[in-house]
Structure formats: C-alpha cells, structure tokens
Nucleic acid binder design. Structure first.
Length: 598
RNA sequence: GGGGCUGUAGUAGAGUCGGUUACAACGCCGGCCUGUCACGCCGGAGGUCGCGGGUUCGAGUCCCGUCAGCCCCGCCA
C-alpha cells in the first residue's frame, strides 16, 4: 500500500544539497537509484533530475522509517523528511556532487512502487537502442540522456532571447499546408471535408515566412517542426526542428552577421565556449577544390591537391585518360601513413568505392623512393612534381583518386574526413565554423533532364549573374550561404527573389510551366506583385546543432521520442493501421497490397 | 531500391572443429551483515539461442529465407 503525499512539500532538489545546508530540515522527493542494506543501517541513493543524494536510515534513530526503507526497491518513488548532516570522518564521496552530506531520515513515505525495470538505469550498463526506445520514459531517467535534452533547452532559450532582443517576431505558420513540387517527399494528410484532396506537412515554412516579409513584419523567427518523408540517417529524422529566421531590407552579410551573433551567444551560454567573430568564409568553389565537399571539417589539413595537369602526359593510362576526358586526378598526403598495411589500403579502397570511385591509387614514400604499384608509370620529373605538389616526405602515404570531377572530389573529400577522424586529427572540443558562400544557383538533373535548384526555387541569383539566367543559367551563382561546423552543415539560407519577373523566370528555368507555377505557387507570385521588400533568411537544424553541443553521434540522443531508421516509434508503435470507418470518412480505400501489409 | 554489422536468461556478453545437462557476470528473489556509495558474503530462481525452413545420426554453431535494430549508398531543394 502506497503512502499519500499528504501535506508534504518538497523543499530542495537532491543534487543541490551541499555542506552549506548542514543542519537544515529538508523534504526531498525522487526515485530510488539504489538501496544498500547493511543489516542495520540502510542507505538509499535518491535521484531527481538534478542529481543524487544519500539517505541514511538508522534503525536506532527511527525504526519506523527504517522498516519502510527495508521494503523499498530500485525506481520506487519516495519522499523523505530529514536533517542534512555531515558525513562521518573519511566517509565523504568525492564522486558525488552532494558527497559531503547525507540526509538523516526521520520519516519516509513510499509514494509509488515500481516493477523491476527491463534494464538497469545506471551509467555502466550499455543497453540495446531498440529496448531503450521501447521504454524511452525509463531511458530518459538516465542523467546522461537528460543532459542532452537540458542542453537542447539551453539552446532554444538562448536563441529565443537573442532573437527577441534583435526585433524578431515569433509568428506561427500552418502545419496543414499545401504540397509543393521540388525538394523532399511530402507527408500528406487527407482532408475529410474535401475528400480526395490532401494537405502536406511543411518541409519548412519557407513560403509563409516570405509572405510575412511582404506583410511588413520585418523580422520573423520561429522554432518550428518540419517534416520530410525521406530515408533516415544518424543525423536525419522525418520530423525535425528548425530555427527559422527571415529579415527584410537586408543582404547576405546582414543575415550572416546577425546569425553569427546568435550562434556565438548559444556557444557561450550553453557550453561556455567563446566563438571568435567574424567566422571564416569560403566560396563553394574553394571548398570543393581544397576539401572535395561543401561541408569541410576545418579542424585538420589533409587538403586535396589537384594533380590533373601534372599527370596529363604520364604513361599511367588511368590518370592520363581521366585528364584527357575532362576529369580530375586529385590526391591527399597522409603524413606518416607509410605504415598502413595492405589491409588498411584495401579498406580505404572499399571506402572510396562507396562514393563511386573505381579505385584508389597509393604511394608509400620510403627512404629509397616510391613503393607503389603505379611507380613504374612515372618519369622522374613527374615523381618530383607530384611529391612537390603534395609536400611529400619520407614516411608519407599519398592517396589518389582519378575520376570525373564530382566523383573524384566527393570520394577523396569523404576519405579525407574519414582519415581525419580515424587518425585522431579532429578534437571534439575544437569548434571550427565556416560560412560557405557563392553556391551555384542551379544544377543539372541527369535523371529528369532539367535544372533543379541547388538551394530552393526562391533563392536570388547574385546581382552580376542575372544576365546569365538567359545566356548560361548553369553558370549563375546564388545568394545562398551555409554555416558549417566541423564537417556538419548546421544551417543554410539565402537572399530570396523579391521580383515577380525573376521568380517567374526561375520557375521557367526549373521546367515548371506557367500553369503549374500558377497552380502551385500562384499565391507567392501574386504576393511578390504587391510590394515585396528585399528579404532573406536562414534556417538552422536545431537537432544537429544540439548534437554537436552535446557531443553525441546520433540525432536520436537529442530528441525525447525519436523514430527508428524505418521511421517507426517503438514506444507508441506508430504508424499503425486505422479503423475502416476512419478511412471511409476520408474517402480512402487501401490497395490489396497495403492491406496485406506488403 | 541496394551494401554492411548485430540478434544466446531481465541486461550486456562467452560459447573453439557441428557432439553430454548452453556458461560466468550484473540484475532479480531469499538469508546474513550498523558506514556503504556500482557495498560485501551465502543460497536460489531464471533460456522459444529473433522467427521459419533445410542439411545432418546430431544445429546456438553450417545453408536458405524472413523479421527487427543500427551504419552507409541512393534519396534528403
């Protein structure tokens, strides 16, 4: 039989008690982390979200409370009244924040019992993630997991106050909205009132925040859920949260400066880390050239070197053919990498294969020259030129990828990130920010045989590239920018098109016909006719940002109730079938395949 | 859609070459213990080896399929 809370009022949190509280009468409430029964004395580690404090129950001092403590088990919910006392000589526990004190309990109430949990809620037990997710409410009791969500709270709190201080208005946008072409697959919601039609959940509030600028709100911001029905990754969930901002009468540098200030403030208040401003910047072209990717990790070197011109005339047919065919031959120098085993090199070859590279050439620089399957194809002056370009010294390992530009860059760029981490060159508490700018506006989609927007269809071209929209649209650059931290894109945005004619031109370039543009985006095109101010903005991935601040490798760690890789919730068992009646109301009939659960 | 890793008491693991009754740890239950703090000591219970099929005299172990979780490619403006 449980005790009632009665008139008891909690006076302190467990983790807050220290030597300064000695002598005070306190009332504590929480969960039993552990009970240690010495036959006579019983110790209970009482836990709440602030930490743990030790309750001491002495049978001589209070037999009734001691008898109750005898029944108590792990994860039972108890309340205790007692006196904060210093621990006896030599009994201080330095591992505990509250280790200098303990509570001499005079009265104990069992508020609720608990079944033995399916896994131990201590810091020592490693539990399979599917079990953690099924019992997420128990998993969330663990301090390490709570820490991540507390970090998330600190981020949102800081962001909200910064944006408020800078005149941003928090305005909600619809969750039931209109499906748009371009971009990710939409989550659809059937309409009961208008059978046969569907709302879409927003991939982002993009168009609505632009409309708010047209309305004259000047600065908008929202911490908002977004939905994309695409496959999951360690850093991707189907519903995720953006810090979404938009500003009027600004250009790129204004947005960047405002947002740098916000990120610096977040790092100061959430981590105590000072970020040096202004942050570094790099063009997209430079990032690709030096690092092979548009999200470079700048904590280490290992930069890509373009050898295409050096090997153009060489006898190694693979390199020469790629160079002649307009591809790239690039390499990185792994300092001291000559110790890599044959298996290491095979693994690295497999690694670049994932990104489509057909091979990975390697050279070990030994004291007596090149050790390499391809050494024999190169003349002395070519060897020298390659060594010089890469700054090669004895003991180094040179790794080459030759392929069309997109594959050579990505494969070697990913290899660089991989090796940087594997070789311990990326320190966790080293935060290297860089803005990537001057993205291309469009890229050619081979499958669909048309241009698609690199950022999104509302991104403004650079002023000087506007004429290119007619002559050579593939060459036009965008007023777009991404913020990259240690190899992760944490945010991205752009200056938007505020001119109706340019927006219409953009749709045309994307192969969206006038009629389709009208049907899908007519309300935006109309709005742009009624005095849209120049405007632009950005959105940060709150989950990814929090991951980096919390130092975890999985986005699930910073989401209270995350979904599995198959986009299911192991706790609630969503998604699930619905009643036939619900479907009838919506005018929906399932295919026989769907009914069978194929 | 594709590639890879994992799946054995409640938990996390060991289980060799296919061979007797599937191990020890933590947790759980009972007993002892008045200064522990991942307390200690003694005893006990606890198994659909993910699931289905196959090979074999014999399968946790080998083969095929399947399910689930994770990592990755594609996908994610």
């Amino acid at each position: 039989m449980n005790d009632q809370l009665g008139s008891w009022k909690r006076t302190h949190y467990c983790g807050d008690l220290k030597a300064g509280n000695i002598g005070e009468q306190v009332c504590l409430m929480g969960w039993v982390q552990r009970r240690r029964d010495h036959g006579g004395l019983i110790f209970i580690d009482l836990r709440d979200r602030t930490g743990i404090v030790q309750l001491a129950l002495d049978p001589d001092r209070d037999p009734e409370a001691h008898a109750k403590a005898d029944q108590v088990r792990s994860e039972w919910v108890v309340a205790a009244i007692g006196r904060v006392s210093p621990r006896p000589e030599g009994m201080v526990n330095p591992k505990l924040k509250t280790g200098e004190v303990e509570i001499e309990v005079s009265e104990l109430r069992i508020l609720n019992q608990a079944e033995t949990p399916p896994f131990m809620l201590d810091e020592y037990t490693d539990v399979a993630e599917n079990l953690r997710l099924k019992y997420r409410y128990l998993d969330l009791r663990r301090p390490a997991v709570q820490e991540c969500l507390i970090m998330r709270h600190k981020v949102t709190r800081t962001v909200r106050s910064y944006l408020d201080e800078n005149g941003f208005l928090d305005i909600e946008t619809p969750v039931l909205t209109k499906s748009t072409p371009e971009g990710a697959r939409d989550y659809l919601v059937p309409s009961r009132v208008n059978q046969g039609t569907f709302y879409a959940l927003p991939q982002s509030p993009q168009i609505f925040k632009q409309l708010l600028m047209v309305s004259g709100f000047d600065r908008y911001a929202q911490i908002v859920k977004c939905f994309r029905d695409e496959d999951l990754r360690a850093d991707r969930q189907p519903e995720f949260t953006q810090i979404d901002c938009e500003m009027s009468f600004v250009d790129r540098d204004d947005v960047i400066a405002m947002m740098e200030g916000m990120i610096a403030r977040v790092f100061r208040e959430a981590l105590g880390v000072e970020v040096k401003l202004p942050m570094a910047r790099m063009t997209y072209a430079e990032a690709l050239d030096r690092f092979g990717v548009d999200n470079p990790d700048l904590r280490f070197g290992l930069e890509l070197v373009d050898l295409t011109d050096i090997v153009r005339e060489c006898d190694f047919k693979v390199f020469a053919d790629v160079a002649a065919g307009g591809g790239l031959v690039k390499a990185i120098n792994v300092k001291g990498g000559a110790t890599f085993s044959r298996k290491d090199l095979d693994d690295l070859t497999g690694f670049v294969g994932i990104y489509g590279a057909k091979g990975l050439a390697w050279v070990k620089i030994n004291a007596d020259g090149w050790q390499s399957p391809i050494a024999k194809f190169f003349k002395d002056e070519e060897l020298k030129a390659i060594e010089q370009a890469l700054g090669a010294e004895t003991g180094d390992l040179l790794l080459f990828v030759a392929d069309k530009a997109s594959i050579a860059n990505e494969a070697l760029g990913r290899l660089r990130q991989h090796l940087g981490h594997k070789l311990g060159m990326a320190k966790k508490d080293d935060y290297r920010f860089v803005w990537i700018t001057d993205f291309p506006l469009l890229e050619w989609d081979e499958e669909e045989k048309r241009h698609v927007a690199v950022h999104h269809p509302f991104t403004a071209p650079m002023d000087e590239d506007i004429p290119l929209l007619d002559s050579d649209p593939g060459k036009a650059r965008a007023k777009a920018y991404d913020l990259v931290l240690n190899g992760s894109e944490i945010g991205g945005g752009s200056i938007r098109i505020h001119d109706q004619a340019i927006q219409a031109k953009m749709f045309e370039l994307l192969g969206i016909g006038e009629e389709e543009a009208r049907a899908k985006f007519g309300f935006l095109l109309d709005a742009l006719k009624y005095g849209a101010p120049p405007h632009g903005g950005i959105a940060f991935g709150l989950d990814r940002l929090t991951m980096l601040l919390a130092g975890t490798d999985s986005i699930r760690d910073v989401i209270a109730f995350p979904k599995t890789q198959k986009a299911t919730c192991l706790l609630s068992e969503a998604p699930s079938p619905v009643d036939e009646k619900q479907l009838r109301e919506l005018g929906i009939r399932l295919s026989s395949r769907a009914r069978k659960g194929d």
